[in-house]
Simulated assay, not measured.
Amino acid sequence: MTPATRTSTIRRRIALAAGAVAVAAIDLSAKAWAENYLDAPIPLGPIDLRLAYNPGVAFSMGTGAPTWLIIAVTATITVVVAAVAWRAAAAPARLRLTALTLVLGGAAANLIDRARDGVVTDYLHSGWFPTFNLADTTIVTGAGLLVLAAARHRAPDTDVAPGPAPGAFETEPT
């Protein structure tokens, strides 16, 4: 690895970490605000601000599971995402790095929130969808960007045997 490549990788990893910390900090600040000041729902149009707590995971699945188990599983997933993001930062793929930054920041924020009292604080309510929070939106947005990045940068199909070289079967005119 050249010094320039090493420097670029370090910069991307710093950006990844800083971005994930910023996402987590913004979400945890919004959760703190919701817990301290959101006494009654605030209608804002398609999304209302309404305080709720989720003892389970996505869509309240696993609500009856022990808190320690949910924390252990989400911590493991968060560590795996962090490792994948750290390795991915070695390549200059901005869309993928942005996506992983959003997923990591959201996952870390929800993990930190759950570790405090066993539940995740939610505050965005649509009326037709389960109540969620900013970390959830960054995780979903990041996952969508990962799909987009994968679709844009598909590896060539290596299962197909290469055909003959162009002109291999051409004959000279007689």
Rank of each mutant, 00 (worst) to 15 (best):
A52P: 12
V140D: 12
H153G: 04
A143W: 06
T74Y: 02
T174A: 15
R154A: 08
L16R: 04
W33E: 07
R50A: 01
P46E: 11
R6Y: 06
L44R: 07
L44G: 13
T5I: 14
D48S: 11
A155V: 02
G118F: 13
G163F: 04
Y37C: 07
A58Y: 03
L111W: 09
P43Y: 00
L104P: 13
V119I: 06
A99K: 08
I71G: 02
P130F: 06
V57W: 01
A18H: 02
P3N: 10
R13Y: 02
A20G: 02
I71V: 11
A89C: 03
Y123D: 05
P41D: 00
A32C: 05
G105R: 14
I10F: 14
R96S: 11
R116Y: 11
T121S: 12
N54Q: 06
A32F: 07
L69V: 14
L16F: 05
L148K: 13
V160I: 15
D122Q: 08
W86H: 07
R87N: 04
D159L: 12
A32K: 11
G56Y: 05
W86T: 10
I10C: 14
L148P: 07
T67R: 14
G167Y: 04
T74N: 06
L51K: 12
G19N: 02
A20V: 01
A107T: 07
T67P: 00
V80N: 03
L100K: 10
A82G: 15
A93I: 03
N36M: 11
N133A: 00
H125G: 01
A165F: 04
R96F: 03
A88I: 03
A22T: 11
A115P: 08
I70V: 07
R12C: 07
R96T: 13
V84D: 11
V23E: 03
T67L: 03
A165K: 09
L95W: 10
V103G: 13
R87H: 09
G19Y: 01
G144A: 15
L95C: 11
E172T: 11
T137E: 02
M61P: 08
G64D: 12
A88N: 11
A18L: 11
G167H: 01
N110L: 00
T174S: 15
A40K: 15
T101W: 00
G64A: 10
G106S: 07
P156H: 05
